[in-house]
Design a protein around this nucleic acid. Structure first.
Lengths: 193, 193
DNA sequence: CAATAATGACACATGAATGTCGCAAAATAA
DNA sequence: TTATTTTGCGACATTCATGTGTCATTATTG
């Protein structure tokens, strides 16, 4: 694939993420438009809608993986790790919208169980072993709720709340909800980056 | 309107709620089918899609209002009240799916501020005045997160977790996340119904 | 039972989104 | 500059949801 083609392809995928994040039912024409590309060009790079969706899913996956790496889930307490991960995810902005949509073009459930054994799931499990994460809550519940809290944060961002405020409240809520012993206290946004 | 017509109309609205809860892009034909009614009949009762959506929105509103009344938000502590409300909402099942969909046919935001001054918003406000609800969290955040926690619970239900387990975890998480002082402890599902 | 209302099964028109093609213009690479 | 690639434009066929209307059949009501 030539560099020019590669560039255009990326342009389309990025536009797709941006547009679909706000409306999953968005038209291919809208996406092409957002990418400053004609619809025929879009079809030249992606045979059909599913093809584009798959590419978007793949791109999101690498972004999420990158964020997960930056969160260094293995280091420190599990609660701190989850907090860092949440903050990293929050920084991804638009992409989050794709995860929650009802026809979700992006499906993190299919990712976590994968190559490396150190995903969110593993972090929660270890946190519950260490007594760091509330053992009365099922691991599935914690994982699901981790995502929906992120959804809360995303909604707040969309609603105009400042990034700083959202980050603080997400962090605090996360720690209080999932923490076990006396970990619900002060909730500075983790050990920083 | 004749009783027969009224009955059919209700049949369609109910089917619409059930079907749209799972896929907001569902076809009118699918809805008619789910209602055991021909598509022409559906169109006879609702001129267009928006008309049906409006009826569904209205129906959901009364159901939510009914649930809110059952929760007796004015009685007892705010946290207990929110817990009761969450449990009532959870019992509504399918309807919840409509609230979170991206093209949300149902919009609770437009309801709360209304006739009576005692909605979720008011409960949160009073809870924060009384020191019952964490004052470090903004009221907007608490309200948004209340809904997304409900979303968590709904997802868990869809995923096959028992109603009982979901109710328990929702209650516990809600209380821990929103509670202020030492209210994160035992989390029996409120003072019952 | 008889009159009226409601329904189901079609047929039809319309608009929107999708996917495909061919050709000319433009950008890129050598 | 020249050759190749990529893109834009427009036309076209297709599919699908929608909305409208008709007519025979069924159910409901009085």
């Amino acid at each position: 694939m030539s560099p020019a083609a590669r560039r255009t392809r990326k342009l389309i995928v990025d536009a797709g993420i941006a547009v679909l994040a706000e409306r999953t039912s968005a038209t291919l024409a809208e996406i092409a438009d957002a990418a400053d590309v004609s619809r025929s060009t879009l079809h030249r790079h992606f045979t059909d809608r599913n093809d584009l969706l798959a590419a978007i899913d793949a791109e999101c996956r690498v972004r999420f993986d990158r964020a997960a790496s930056a969160a260094r889930l293995g280091e420190g307490g599990a609660l701190d790790a989850m907090d860092r991960l949440a903050q990293e995810y929050l920084g991804m902005g638009l992409v989050l919208g794709l995860v929650f949509a009802d026809n979700a073009p992006v499906d993190p459930d299919g990712w976590d169980r994968g190559d490396e054994g150190d995903g969110l799931t593993a972090t929660i499990a270890s946190g519950q072993r260490d007594g760091d994460v509330d053992p009365e809550l099922s691991a599935e519940w914690v994982e699901t709720t981790f995502w929906t809290l992120l959804f809360s944060a995303w909604l707040s961002l969309q609603g105009g709340t400042s990034r700083r405020d959202v980050a603080f409240q997400l962090s605090r809520t996360l720690r209080k909800a999932f923490g076990h012993s006396a970990s619900g206290g002060e909730a500075g946004p983790g050990a920083g980056k």
